[in-house]
């Protein structure tokens, strides 16, 4: 049990580069996860706000879609950023989770949690649900592959029609709950991870996380609910669609 000499930090640094040692380190990967998570959350917020235009009627929403498409550089820039973030995020999540599982080969027979939350303990599961959801969501409303009556360009129609049918709205609701959990823990957790902490404001981190999560989740949930309660109907969709196509 005698301790032997260990390589000092300096010796360690000279052989490995700065970036690779950062990415190899637990904190480095956590920071990657936090920053990519921030990008993804930022997108989710903007995405939800943009979608609120559905309540202004088909013309407004579809016009918004047209506007976005008119700026391919921005659109593709964002897509690449999101894709890269998602890949990095999942990479970091998988590698850290594996390290965490390996760190305790033999578990406890009994364990009582005191401080952790349901959200914090289920991050990896809410994350997996989100990943599946993202794939489904793209196939459903972006590519239309799994959509029963997909009309390219008629966003309003696709959303309303998409939520009228089968299990789609339920999966959507489930995903939003997962998003809520992931986001609540993720938002304040990422502040901790990048070192944003101050005794006076730490409590605000939770309030902020709760607020932004509630905003996104309620906003997003309102869409299927509005469709299912009949608040949003698939009026004049074909006309709008043709207009959009022109």
């Amino acid at each position: 049990m005698s301790a032997n000499a260990i390589p000092t930090p300096l010796r360690l640094n000279r052989t490995t580069g700065r970036t690779s040692s950062f990415l190899a380190s637990s904190i480095g990967r956590k920071v990657v996860m936090a920053l990519t998570g921030l990008v993804l959350f930022g997108y989710v917020v903007v995405h939800m706000l943009g979608n609120l235009q559905i309540y202004l009627g088909p013309a407004a929403l579809n016009a918004y879609a047209v506007k976005l498409r008119a700026m391919p550089a921005l659109l593709w820039g964002v897509r690449v950023l999101l894709f890269a973030s998602a890949v990095l995020h999942v990479w970091a999540a998988v590698s850290l989770t594996r390290a965490n599982v390996a760190a305790r080969g033999i578990g406890y027979r009994e364990r009582r949690n005191r401080e952790s939350t349901y959200a914090s303990r289920t991050m990896r599961w809410s994350g997996v649900i989100l990943l599946l959801f993202i794939v489904y969501h793209l196939l459903h409303l972006t590519l239309g592959t799994v959509h029963p009556g997909f009309v390219p360009g008629d966003v309003y129609h696709n959303v309303v029609r998409g939520f009228q049918m089968g299990i789609a709205p339920f999966f959507y609701v489930l995903a939003m709950l997962a998003l809520g959990l992931h986001m609540y823990h993720g938002v304040w957790s990422l502040m901790q991870t990048v070192g944003l902490s101050h005794p006076r404001y730490d409590r605000l981190r939770y309030a902020f996380a709760a607020f932004i999560t509630a905003l996104v989740v309620l906003g997003n949930l309102s869409f299927p609910i509005a469709v299912m309660t009949g608040l949003l109907k698939d009026r004049s969709s074909s006309r709008a669609a043709t207009a959009a196509r022109r």
């Binding site: 260990i6 000092t8 930090p9 300096l10 360690l12 640094n13 040692s21 190899a24 380190s25 637990s26 904190i27 990967r29 956590k30 850290l96 390290a99 965490n100 390996a102 760190a103 305790r104 949690n113 401080e115 952790s116 939350t117 914090s120 303990r121 991050m123 823990h185 304040w188 957790s189 901790q192 991870t193």
Partner: peptide, 18 residues
């Protein structure tokens, strides 16, 4: 940097802010 590198090398898990 040195302490974190050693901490990782010892096989501890990472922080997920529980």
């Amino acid at each position: 940097r040195g302490m974190v590198a050693q901490m990782d090398a010892e096989g501890f898990g990472t922080c997920t802010n529980h």
